[in-house]
Design a protein around this nucleic acid. Structure first.
Lengths: 349, 349
DNA sequence: CGCCCTTGTCAAAACGTTTCAAATTTCGGA
DNA sequence: TCCGAAATTTGAAACGTTTTGACAAGGGCG
């Protein structure tokens, strides 16, 4: 493998000049630069990352630490993110180091990875309010970027979708169809996106003059079983008290809702409308539902390029506060939503 | 961060001596070694990996390159392996670099990772016969280890379960229960484990004097939908031609088989016995089946420690040919298997 | 006293790059 | 012809480690 010295020897130049020529420094003669470029190509020169790292202190790698959870495998978003990020990063010539965190102390894994001086920054997902990982990284002024945010006003680099808007849009659709009793099967209560969606759910419901019942709100993992259990509880309430529409924070939840409706012989969309947010493979999954599921959607993959860009900017020295990317979800109206069924004692038939 | 020089200065020693003391070289006074150890602890010394790498040429990292497949997310084993490996490697002070391969050329991703001189070796999964990745890595004498093997007699380091034995055991159980018409819902035909299991399936069937019908053998991804479709085809054959038992190469397949049996009102195990190999979370998933599923089992996680050890040995210079770890699957008899139903025209009843 | 061997230590080189400070060349203008 | 500034190029230091070859001290032996 050719080195800077080799190229220098080939052309009668010092390694220093070769380095500057290849790195685009302005003070090198353009004719010399060309000669260097040609020789580097010819000799198949590849900068030795390790040497670069040693002198610059940068490693060209970023870390991601997964927190082990027993039901992780039921959540396909993580896998998507992993592969999407790895692809996005490698386009930018950055590599991804993976670790899993099985310890009780959530920051221990970060310390360990840092102590080997092998990553320039981190990518975090699923932040919680008062997330100790974020506190640790901020306290040590380490570059990181978060998928999601642990507070609505976050002063670190993050990518997030506009959770309030998608809750607003979903409620607006349902109320405009005449629904007033709307259930909400949400993500885990500790997670910020769930809090944001719930908050706006309440606001939008109030704006439409629809009541919000706490027993029609449930929190939990984005799994089919949680969706099933929640919907079963909501839908087995007496006629007139049960929701005519359910909003879900994920398509897996919606799958559970569909199953519960099926088991209770409640027809979708005639007797129950369902809207979900789809952060997996927008369109692909939702289309396969029977009937096809109305969704707000933004894929995990869409987050990967912005996340990579933000992190690279941060590592390059950009101030953390300004770095953010908020994406609006798209709306896909499919067949799981319809007009609210006529209520008992309703004027129309 | 303290360096060797710092420790040397602290104790009036040269960095060279400090290095030798910490790395256990014999020619250093044991009293000196103790002083060095103490000082290193006190100053919180951590060897700088980058500098180590530059001089030794080793990076302390290994790479894993995932091939993107559209239905990847349905396959939870990969995720298991990723997290398990990462944990196993980090115990051994090795880090895992992840990349995804979206290119047409399967070796391009390996070349790219190598050109950055950042990994010492690779971990491969799901090898195919004549796998170009294996050919490439062997041709360049690069350390790697494979989960599975692309030929029964493989001359590279690999971990594998004894696929022939588990096929033999499963068939033996079923034939001893009186089953003679046994379906086999297998993995993809190109994959070696599937070929191995099929081969032994035929052998064991022949040994029991049971006929093997090609139409009762199906190949495909280890997904529920493939299991469902295959079982539906097998079970909707006319009475007397349809199998009384089905062997599955994965629990996801078994889930599909259960669903098909349910849809066709075929009772398990009264009218149909099901055995599957469970490489996910042995016991945990199979227990949740209704009725609980009889399995041969070895978890993905069990592979991780041996894989890590084999790769580290190989990187340290061990000859590739001898490095192998073959694990026998365990047998869990549950309630999805029972005596073969009496055949029409059978003597009894 | 000279020789060799062992033990413990060290200085220096090496890995390949970046970058600082200095040296050299070039050139326009006086 | 000379000066100073600008344009190029260079040597050397630095990053933190491993490793080679050398060396000093001490001991045993003839």
């Amino acid at each position: 493998m050719a080195t800077l010295k080799d190229i220098g020897a080939e052309l009668g130049l010092s390694p220093a000049t070769v380095s500057r020529a290849l790195n685009g420094f302005p003070e090198v003669n353009s004719e010399t630069r060309e000669r260097v470029r040609e020789a580097a190509d010819r000799l198949g020169y590849r900068p030795n990352r390790v040497a670069q790292r040693l002198v610059t202190g940068r490693s060209g790698m970023v870390g991601m630490i997964l927190r082990m959870r027993p039901d992780m495998r039921e959540d396909p978003t993580l896998f998507d993110m992993l592969t999407g990020l790895s692809a996005a990063l490698s386009l930018r010539d950055v590599d991804l180091v993976l670790a899993v965190d099985q310890e009780t102390d959530p920051v221990a894994a970060y310390e360990r990875m840092l102590s080997r001086s092998l990553v320039d920054g981190f990518i975090l997902a699923a932040p919680e309010p008062d997330d100790p990982r974020i506190a640790y990284l901020q306290a040590h002024d380490l570059p990181f970027v978060v998928h999601g945010r642990h507070a609505f006003q976050a002063d670190y680099p993050f990518y997030d979708i506009d959770n309030r808007k998608l809750a607003r849009d979903s409620v607006a659709l349902l109320t405009s169809l005449g629904h007033r009793r709307i259930g909400f099967v949400n993500g885990e209560a500790e997670l910020t996106y769930a809090q944001d969606r719930l908050r706006e759910f309440r606001v939008a419901m109030a704006a439409a003059g629809a009541p919000v019942e706490d027993s029609l709100i449930s929190h939990g993992r984005l799994t089919e079983s949680h969706g099933y259990a929640s919907a079963l509880a909501m839908l087995s309430r007496p006629e007139g008290l049960r929701p005519t529409a359910i909003l879900c924070s994920g398509t897996m939840l919606a799958k559970g809702v569909y199953r519960a409706a099926h088991d209770l012989a409640i027809a979708i969309p005639q007797a129950l409308s369902v809207v979900a947010h789809d952060d997996i493979w927008p369109g692909l999954e939702a289309d396969r539902f029977d009937p096809p599921l109305t969704t707000t959607a933004k894929s995990m993959r869409a987050a990967c390029d912005p996340l990579a860009d933000l992190l690279i900017q941060r590592i390059a020295g950009a101030a953390p506060a300004g770095l953010r990317h908020i994406e609006e979800a798209d709306f896909f109206l499919r067949e799981s939503t319809g007009p609210a069924p006529p209520r008992e004692g309703d004027a129309r038939r």
